[in-house]
């Protein structure tokens, strides 16, 4: 038992030394620092070069005032109607889906994207970093 404990300690120590080496040499990002681009998000510059299906997760008024061309309106309020429109569009031509809301501070796009990942597990789904603000500016 003591030998197993000693072996485990050696392995743990070597692993920690290796991880510290990665951190100090900049091979790995600091895990406690929030990344520039959170997982599941995509930058507009990257989204523009893809053939994607846009989902507008803002409210009806904001959508009527302006939206990305061909964007489908889908949020938590009109989920049942919007999901059928989205299914039709996506099944007819499967492509990445990008959800956006009003700005970097809104959380709707992330929530809608998360819900869509459960509804369409085979689809590639992102939320747009910066939201509608990024598109307008």
């Amino acid at each position: 038992m003591s030998r197993l404990l000693r072996e485990f300690s050696i392995i743990a120590l070597l692993t920690c030394i290796g991880a510290a080496f990665s951190l100090f040499n900049g091979l790995a990002p600091l895990p406690w620092v929030e990344p520039d681009l959170p997982a599941g998000e995509i930058r507009l510059v990257d989204a523009r070069v893809l053939n994607v299906l846009w989902i507008d997760a803002r409210g009806e008024d904001a959508y009527q005032q302006g939206h990305i061309p061909d964007a489908i309106q889908l949020n938590e309020d009109n989920w049942d109607d919007g999901i059928f429109t989205l299914m039709d569009a996506w099944l007819g031509n499967p492509r990445p889906i990008i959800v956006y809301c009003s700005s970097a501070r809104c959380g709707t796009s992330s929530r809608v994207a998360e819900r869509l990942r459960d509804a369409l597990p085979a689809a590639e789904i992102y939320s747009l970093h910066g939201g509608w603000d990024a598109w307008v500016h």
């Binding site: 692993t15 990665s22 895990p31």
Partner: peptide, 16 residues
């Protein structure tokens, strides 16, 4: 994602 960064830091060294 906040925990996956820790896994990505430690697991490869453990495997090695």
């Amino acid at each position: 994602p906040e925990h996956s960064a820790w896994v990505a830091l430690g697991l490869p060294w453990l495997e090695l």
